[in-house]
Simulated assay, not measured.
Amino acid sequence: MIAGVILAGGLSQRMGGGDKCLLPVGGRPILAHVIARLAPQVGMLALNANGAPARFAAFGLPVLPDSVGDFPGPLAGVLAGMDWAARGGAELLVTAAADTPFFPETLVAELRAAARAEGLPLAMAVTRNASGGTDRHPTFGLWPVALREELRATLAAGQRRVVAFTEPRGCARAVFPQAVPDPFFNVNAPEDLAAADAFIAAASR
């Protein structure tokens, strides 16, 4: 069984604070779009978020706070997800960002295929860019739950960068093609909300 965790533990500073995943896009909260895409791909699903969990009650997901203080970033959410997945008997965890409503519906399958093809324990989503290289999306990853104690120690040592944890342990690349909208388009600022609404409106015509 593969567990999924949606990462919503950040401070949303560029949106002025608050829960940007609850902002509406196409008439629904961004989080609703994320759940609709990830839930069919995993055996169990939770949300990593800090603060009062009741504000997410309508979505019916377990809410996992960071187990590490001072908002150390996505790795803290990954660790919370790993601990929860381990309790549920899952060996693998897939993470997705809560502010990204268009990510691929084949995310989990592509991450697993990349890890198997390269013989590596971890996998990360990347997309091709205009210059012929790739752009990394480190919050969209495949994580063996068995690495949770290593991750706990890494965070305790003050390391917060996702890539600094994944690269030394072997991280495959799941390459996704360019598309419109960008599959990993994320809502960081108010103008991004308008862009996301426009994408959805165009798709419904």
Rank of each mutant, 00 (worst) to 15 (best):
A32M: 04
S12Q: 09
N48V: 13
F103V: 06
R116V: 15
G132K: 01
G26T: 03
G119Q: 04
D99Y: 03
P53R: 03
S131R: 13
Q41H: 11
F59V: 05
G17H: 14
A130H: 12
A130I: 03
D70T: 07
T100S: 15
K20N: 14
G77H: 02
G73V: 00
A85V: 03
P40F: 13
R148N: 06
K20P: 05
V94I: 06
M124E: 09
V25F: 06
V145K: 08
A39T: 10
G141P: 10
E105L: 07
A46D: 09
A49R: 09
Q41C: 07
A96E: 01
L45G: 04
A32S: 08
A80K: 01
R148G: 01
A117T: 12
A80V: 03
A123G: 13
G132H: 02
A46M: 05
W84F: 03
G26C: 10
S12A: 15
G60R: 04
A98P: 14
N50L: 13
L64M: 01
A39M: 11
I6V: 05
G60F: 02
R55M: 10
P121N: 05
P138W: 01
A52N: 15
F102C: 05
G88D: 06
V42P: 09
A39S: 13
R55G: 02
A113N: 10
D83I: 13
L79E: 07
L107M: 09
V94G: 08
R28Y: 04
M15Q: 14
D83R: 15
T134E: 15
L45R: 10
S67E: 14
A109T: 03
A85M: 08
D19K: 14
S67W: 03
L23V: 08
A39I: 02
A80F: 00
A146L: 14
M15H: 13
R116T: 14
G132R: 01
A125M: 04
G17I: 07
P40V: 03
R28S: 10
P65A: 11
D135H: 13
A97C: 12
P104N: 00
P24Y: 07
E105T: 13
E110V: 09
A36E: 15
D135F: 09
V108Q: 00
A90S: 12
D19T: 07
L93T: 00
L11R: 15
V34M: 06
D83M: 11
L22K: 14
A109W: 02
A117H: 11
